[in-house]
Design a binder for these strands. Structure first.
Lengths: 139, 139
DNA sequence: GTATGTGCAAAATGTTTGCAAGCCG
DNA sequence: CGGCTTGCAAACATTTTGCACATAC
């Protein structure tokens, strides 16, 4: 347990969003400016292998991370207009997928589910100000 | 409509699996050896924008493609031991997700669902010959 | 003191792009 | 011909890695 890992672990457990490596690096740098990106990459990989962290891919090319929650699972709805992530639960879902896997002759290992949606507004603005190309916001 | 696009379109419509760009390039090269990877990238992007192709991410870092199917949707189960992809249908699924989006105040745009599983064998070989790290097979 | 972790910069990987040349209609 | 398409190689973005140095225990 080195200082750097302690700091990165701290940042991760404090986070209630889904930061990517660059964001983790930024936050960790505030607490200890002599941390390098390479160490962040190495640490998240380590923590993922240990099952402490989970890697997510919400599109946009970079991996994002969140602490593993033991017990109730949750899924993600991504707002296609601003990249914001909303978490939701769906009790029946995993059980349903377990049955699908079984039907196909497989043991369920894991699943990935992401929902993409657009905020439902009162005046369904016909020409919403689409934030253009590939600059997804955090969360 | 140039020769190259014709060839690439051909390869795509002939494919009943989920090739990545490298694989498409390989198959296209057989039919016309003077096609470049750049053209394959440009063509799949074009076809995706036109809604003819769909890009998938089954993990492993590279995008994979399959022809858009109008009508019944299907999902994918990835065999974690060899990367093979099995397609399956689940009638109720999309309707379920539409309701979830609605409950959260969103209009459903699209969803992503992947199931990861391991083949259920008779003699659950305790130490299966895991094909090591990151060399997912085709399909 | 030794195994392990780190910083840095270079390499690897997958994808995109600028540009000059080529093909299509 | 005039514009869209190509090939090539260079540029990109993210992630990994080799190596010498630093740190933990």
């Amino acid at each position: 347990m080195t200082g750097q890992r302690r700091v990165i672990a701290r940042v991760l457990s404090d986070a209630d969003d889904h930061p990517d490596v660059e964001e983790l690096y930024r936050r960790a740098s505030v607490l200890d400016s002599r941390i390098s990106v390479a160490t962040v990459y190495r640490t998240v990989r380590l923590l993922e292998e240990k099952g402490i962290l989970e890697r997510r891919d919400f599109g946009g090319g970079r991996a994002r991370y969140e602490a593993t929650e033991h017990g109730r699972h949750h899924y993600h709805l991504i707002d296609v207009d601003n990249g914001k992530v909303i978490e939701f639960e769906d009790q029946e879902h995993e059980e349903l997928m377990r049955r699908v896997a079984e039907r196909l002759g497989f043991d369920f290992v894991s699943m990935r589910l992401e929902l993409f949606g657009r905020k439902r507004t009162v005046q369904q603005e016909a020409k919403a100000p689409q934030p253009s190309k590939r600059k997804g916001a955090a969360s």
